[in-house]
């Protein structure tokens, strides 16, 4: 029996009737990072959106913790422990950092005071967010906004964390810091699905790599078995 927390089998999905992903399969396991790589428009984000429940399932199967996800709405999937950090640092820009983080725990159904107790967990991971707690999230730097976005997702106590290009638009030093935090989360036992353009940074912390091109898997391999990174890079370029 598979020890996968999330199993995606022959996924077909898209936007309304328009299909963008034809046949994608991968798994996510606790304490491991599964990297989804590929060039722009290959279908990585669409795949994550389908797992999160934002895009319709045209075919294939999504199974989370032994339960099919097809009939479960997006907001209910968060309650099950699926947290998705979208690309582009989608924080609530007019609300404060603290309010953003509290909203992250909305699915827990706790009272505000109880949720405030949960903030310590996030502040430990991203101490800067404690200092910026009363600042509007939209006023923060790109890296800090990414921390807010990840912190929001973690407030929901997820078992599966999906990160869509967390390094996008960030300075190299900030990328290194964000990736270091992702590695910590992996060590804590979270199952992580990481979509990245930065192949080397992703492979460094990933346990399994799946390369998608034109909505189909073209490479799927444990990182330990990758002897030629150029082959992965070529696949990501569609060659």
């Amino acid at each position: 029996m598979s020890d996968a927390l999330l199993s995606v089998a022959n996924l077909a999905t898209g936007y309304g009737d328009l299909r963008a992903v034809w046949d994608v399969s991968f798994e996510a396991r606790p304490g491991q990072v599964t990297a989804l790589l590929g060039r722009n428009g290959s279908g990585k984000t669409t795949t994550l959106r389908a797992v999160a429940g934002l895009n319709p399932l045209h075919g294939g199967e999504l199974v989370y913790d032994g339960r099919p996800l097809a009939q479960i709405s997006a907001h209910a999937r968060v309650k099950l422990g699926i947290s998705y950090v979208q690309e582009g640092k989608r924080v609530f820009r007019e609300q404060t950092v603290q309010e953003n983080l509290l909203l992250g725990g909305y699915s827990l159904g706790l009272r505000r005071r109880a949720l405030e107790g949960e903030l310590a967990r996030i502040h430990e991971l991203f101490p800067i967010l404690r200092d910026k707690r009363d600042s509007p999230a939209g006023s923060l730097s790109g890296g800090q906004q990414q921390m807010v976005a990840i912190g929001q997702a973690l407030m929901a106590r997820p078992r599966l964390l999906m990160l869509d290009e967390p390094s996008g638009g960030l300075a190299p030093s900030v990328v290194a810091e964000v990736m270091a935090r992702v590695a910590e989360l992996k060590a804590s036992g979270l199952a992580i699905v990481l979509v990245e353009q930065a192949v080397e940074a992703a492979v460094e912390i990933a346990d399994h790599v799946t390369v998608i091109d034109v909505g189909k898997v073209v490479v799927s391999s444990p990182v330990a078995e990758i002897d030629d990174l150029e082959r992965i890079k070529d696949a990501c370029m569609g060659r």
Binding site: V78, R90, F92, A156
Partner: peptide
């Protein structure tokens, strides 16, 4: 001050992001 109130304001800024925080928009 209320979590549901924060959620309503969040919805007005980005309904999809609110859904991803577990809000039944």
């Amino acid at each position: 001050r209320r979590l549901n109130g924060l959620a309503v304001v969040a919805m007005s800024q980005d309904a999809e992001a609110a859904v991803l925080r577990g809000v039944n928009v």
